[in-house]
Design a binder for these strands. Structure first.
Length: 292
DNA sequence: CGACTTTGACCAGCGC
DNA sequence: GCGCTGGTCAAAGTCG
């Protein structure tokens, strides 16, 4: 088990983002979900929630802070199991500086206490799609699977994970696109109130880590969004329109790999402010970058 | 032995 | 009200 945390990041498990160089932002009215859209390259992600890393405690309790801030830190890597199939992400259980979600306990979620009459509180959600052959992408945190369900109109089951940190209420949902089985859709809910397991051994970080709770400018790359239309729930990942471009890029690749579109390599990006700018205040970014 | 996964059952929300 | 579906629980099993 220890080996898991020490193993070098596995590109295959890290997955590959499906990205683009042109994108737009839309909103899915079904549940206040925001989706980024784009049309090229590999990285793709959509904001299925209201924010990424709400700074204030309780922000996730329904309120939707317009700006997200949060702790930014070196992202981690994780580990993988020997069979290379069931990968668990490593994570740091220690919250050295719970600066952002500190003082108070994380928002209480009636997860375990499924008491009658108690309404489920939705946490901010953020989803992205990754081209990967493995379902569970590593993101620097450790997750415990607590459920799996067959999804309507999809041949692929959906897995439910919870952060192993007892104080952390973050959950994530992993499922494969019904239209493009090579694409894994990961949806995060909530925000981590702790740091990741540690710094990446090998320097490769999964994209997930950067969005789950600690948008990390330390990572040399950012990802560009693609549209994740969600007209209906029949298929959470209608990525067909992207498949082609993806395939083009993926041609020749045997499997998924951690792939990031670095700022530098994205000339057409809306600006490196783009998504990042919407999420992490410039000041914070620079500050953290200095910590690299 | 502890951590994690699997899996069936249960519960709540939602649409009809 | 009823049925469907998503989400969660928790016991049992697996693995290192």
């Amino acid at each position: 088990m220890e080996d898991k945390d020490r193993a070098p990041p596995d590109p295959a498990t890290a997955g590959e983002f499906i990205g683009n160089s042109s994108w737009s932002l839309g909103v899915d009215d079904s549940d206040g979900t925001h989706f980024f859209s784009g049309d090229r390259d590999r990285t793709m992600f959509g904001d299925i929630g209201w924010n990424l890393v709400p700074d204030q405690v309780g922000a996730s309790e329904g309120s939707l802070p317009p700006v997200q801030t949060g702790s930014i830190e070196p992202a981690p890597t994780s580990s993988y199991r020997s069979n290379n199939q069931s990968i668990s992400s490593s994570s740091s259980e220690d919250p050295p500086e719970k600066s952002t979600v500190s003082d108070e306990k994380p928002p209480e979620i009636p997860s375990k206490s499924k008491k009658k009459g108690q309404k489920r509180i939705r946490q901010p959600r953020f989803a992205f799609m990754t081209k990967s052959e493995v379902d569970h992408l590593e993101d620097g945190y450790r997750w415990r699977k607590y459920g799996q369900k067959a999804v309507k109109n999809s041949p692929f089951p959906r897995s439910y994970y919870r952060c192993t940190n007892s104080k952390c209420t973050v959950k994530k949902r992993v499922e494969r696109s019904c239209e493009d089985p090579t694409i894994v859709v990961t949806t995060y809910e909530g925000q981590h109130c702790h740091h990741t397991v540690g710094y990446p051994r090998g320097g490769i970080i999964s994209h997930e880590a950067s969005f789950t709770g600690h948008f990390s400018p330390t990572m040399p790359q950012f990802y560009y969004p693609i549209q994740i239309p969600t007209e209906s729930n029949t298929c959470t990942t209608p990525v067909s329109q992207h498949s082609q471009s993806l395939d083009d890029h993926e041609a020749g690749r045997s499997s998924s790999a951690t792939m990031a579109v670095s700022d530098a390599s994205l000339p057409q990006h809306p600006t490196d402010e783009g998504l990042l700018g919407d999420i992490v205040p410039r000041g914070m970014r620079s500050r953290d970058e200095r910590n690299i």
